[in-house]
């Protein structure tokens, strides 16, 4: 499927391994990425804090650019950043919820011939995998199931709250998709206290200690629950959980050393991509446990001799 692809800023800035791993994984899943090169930052809630109209207009422009791609055959808009998903959904709710307001914003876009039409479908890669590709199909593509890898999901905030805006319901349980995906890839889900909590990143310049305390506490909780690694759909969470982890250790006074993976990296590992090609060497906390795991499993698969795919049976059905 072809998608209008919005990679966001941080995936091309301080977490280049996210952008790179997405590019690796997409063709394997049959996703053609048409990158929205001219689109601008979603504002991450900060521009909206300054001026709602400015944030809404910038995102309406991004939506209009995506809709132009959709007119040329892209099925929907896809992003790879929870913060983009949350901030853009917030703007979309206002734009879709009031025709006069939308027309007002569209008038600002008019000189470049851009126009946002109500009701764009904008899905995070996580949602797209579950809802558009389907976990069964993803399961059938798994080459190296994450057997015995204990993965803690770290959802963060923007992709799970508020539930009504993000379309989370019993029919679309998007707040369980990371769980479902980890199981589909053959891994073991580790539930821990911080999985739906805030990484603290938004206040890193305003209240550094509180920010790092949050990151440190969730990482510590994951260690206590015996996770091998965390996986997050949000590059901003990744900054606080990985890049800042050595500083968080100091603030909470506890050694951590917990590897944190981006979502496409975890998928890529299960699809058999080399850890280095997924940029796992670019993390501040070396994901040694994960890489060791992946090499040892590769060895065992090769040794099996039958060449058959070990299969991806969800953990819930394995016993």
């Amino acid at each position: 499927m072809k998608v209008a692809y919005w990679p966001g800023c941080v995936s091309r800035g301080f977490t280049p391994e996210l952008h790179g791993s997405m590019a690796k994984v997409a063709p394997m899943l049959g996703i053609e990425l048409v990158q929205l090169d001219r689109a601008s930052c979603c504002g991450a809630g900060v521009i909206a804090e300054h001026s709602q109209e400015l944030a809404d207009t910038l995102n309406a422009r991004t939506f209009a650019l995506a809709q132009a791609e959709m007119a040329r055959g892209a099925e929907l808009m896809m992003n790879i950043c929870s913060t983009c998903q949350g901030a853009q959904s917030e703007c979309q709710q206002r734009l879709d919820g009031n025709t006069d307001y939308r027309e007002h914003v569209n008038r600002t876009l008019e000189p470049e011939g851009l126009r946002y039409e109500r009701g764009i479908v904008n899905k995070h890669f996580l949602w797209l995998m579950v809802e558009e590709i389907g976990l069964d199909r993803i399961g059938s593509m798994v080459k190296r199931p994450l057997t015995d890898l204990r993965v803690g999901p770290f959802y963060g905030c923007y992709i799970v709250r508020p539930t009504d805006r993000l379309g989370i319901s019993r029919e679309t349980p998007r707040d369980t998709y990371l769980h479902q995906l980890i199981e589909t890839l053959g891994g073991t889900v580790v539930d821990y206290a911080g999985q739906y909590k805030c990484c603290g990143f938004p206040i890193i310049t305003m209240h550094r200690e509180n920010s790092l305390k949050q990151a440190g506490r969730h990482l510590g909780d994951a260690i206590d629950a015996e996770a091998d690694c965390l996986v997050t759909p949000c590059p901003l969470c990744h900054l606080n959980l990985d890049l800042q982890q050595p500083l968080a250790e100091k603030v909470i006074g506890r050694p951590l050393g917990m590897p944190v993976l981006h979502l496409p990296q975890l998928v890529g590992l299960a699809l058999g991509v080399d850890p280095k090609e997924l940029g796992l060497n670019k993390h501040v906390v070396k994901p040694t446990s994960v890489v060791d795991w992946s090499t040892s499993v590769v060895a065992s698969v090769d040794g099996g001799g039958d060449g058959g795919r070990p299969g991806a049976v969800p953990a819930s059905q394995r016993h």
């Binding site: 809630g45 949350g86 905030c157 923007y158 709250r161 508020p162 539930t163 909590k197 805030c198 603290g200 990143f201 938004p202 206040i203 305003m206 209240h207 509180n210 920010s211 949050q214």
Partner: peptide, 15 residues
């Protein structure tokens, strides 16, 4: 220091 700029916009209170 514990005022309006100490909020992380986590949306928990909205929820």
């Amino acid at each position: 220091p514990h005022g309006i700029y100490d909020c992380t916009h986590c949306f928990n209170c909205i929820e």
